[in-house]
């Protein structure tokens, strides 16, 4: 019918058919069934939580110390102000991590025997910092280096201060640890580019460096964006670990309020504030990953 009306030159688009095919009816039933199952299981779980948790013996205390409404209203604006410190620390680390991470990945790809020490260094570096818990790196760097008794002051982007400051060595520890993760992501991206791309480039007379710069790296960079965004999301949260060195950021502030009021609500507030920041970031990563998958082909298996 649709084709006919087009052939007749009718200006209006053909009206959709009212009659559903057998397949469409079946698909609609399937969707309804899935929605029904999801809704009922969700209700069951929520009901269990709402019914069981308030019956636990400690609930009245927990409610007062963790979910205190008055404290929440009072602490929220206070703590929100400290979020900016976390974001600033995060934004300061990111460019250094990316640059140092790419540099490490390139070092590991060196095939020139004269530069073997660089390659060995990069391998040892990533093994070391990937193998140590971030919190230990922060402790060792953040307390160890200032203990050398450095004098004087530094100025860097938004931050300035004394050379033995936690605001310097804390971010340095994060950069050291995360650049190792990022280097591995980049390395897998570089190795994921098919050898035929290199062959194509080299057969045209491009040098190894030109091949890397114009053919391999641009393609690898596109592929590593989703895993890279994941690492950045972890970094955003791990900035809170710097509070252990005395960096006065969101988590540290929550601790200070808790110590003053003997109420744990500020921790819940801090958690909520982190979620406000990270949930949009998580959605962005998911959206980008899905788009990337769609673009590089491959459909979902039924």
């Amino acid at each position: 019918m649709a084709a006919l009306s087009h052939r007749e030159g009718a200006g209006d688009p053909p009206a959709p058919s009212r009659v559903l095919t057998r397949r469409e009816v079946w698909l609609r039933q399937q969707r309804r069934r899935a929605a029904l199952i999801a809704a009922s299981s969700m209700t069951a779980v929520l009901l269990a939580v709402v019914l069981i948790v308030p019956r636990t013996p400690g609930w009245p205390t927990v409610k007062k110390t963790f979910f205190n409404g008055a404290r929440f209203r009072q602490d929220f604006p206070d703590l929100l102000g400290y979020l900016w410190t976390d974001v600033k620390l995060f934004l300061t680390c990111v460019p250094f991590i990316l640059i140092w991470g790419v540099a490490l990945a390139m070092m590991r790809n060196i095939r020139n025997p004269a530069l073997f020490p660089l390659r060995a260094f990069a391998a040892a570096y990533t093994d070391l910092f990937r193998g140590i818990p971030v919190i230990l790196t922060i402790y060792l760097v953040g307390f160890g280096i200032p203990a050398l008794g450095l004098k004087g002051e530094f100025h860097l982007l938004w931050f300035g201060g004394r050379w033995n400051s936690a605001y310097l060595w804390g971010p340095v520890a994060l950069i050291l640890a995360y650049s190792a993760y990022v280097a591995e992501v980049f390395r897998s991206g570089i190795e994921g580019i098919h050898e035929s791309q290199r062959a194509g480039a080299r057969s045209l007379g491009l040098t190894q460096t030109q091949t890397m710069r114009h053919v391999v790296l641009p393609q690898a960079a596109r592929r590593v964006v989703p895993p890279l965004m994941n690492d950045m999301l972890s970094l955003q949260k791990d900035v809170a670990l710097l509070s252990l060195l005395g960096v006065y950021e969101l988590f540290r502030r929550a601790q200070v309020i808790k110590d003053r009021t003997f109420n744990y609500t500020p921790y819940v507030v801090a958690a909520v504030i982190f979620l406000i920041l990270t949930i949009p970031e998580t959605r962005l990563v998911d959206w980008y990953s899905a788009r990337h998958r769609r673009r590089t082909g491959g459909s979902q298996v039924a």
Binding site: S196, A199, R202, L204, V215, P218
Partner: peptide, 21 residues
């Protein structure tokens, strides 16, 4: 050094090997 040689020789592959980006 292969580079000065390769610029004198053209090669076409079974899988085209065009740069997709």
């Amino acid at each position: 050094d292969p580079d000065p040689i390769r610029r004198r020789i053209g090669m076409v592959f079974q899988s085209y090997n065009l740069f997709p980006h």
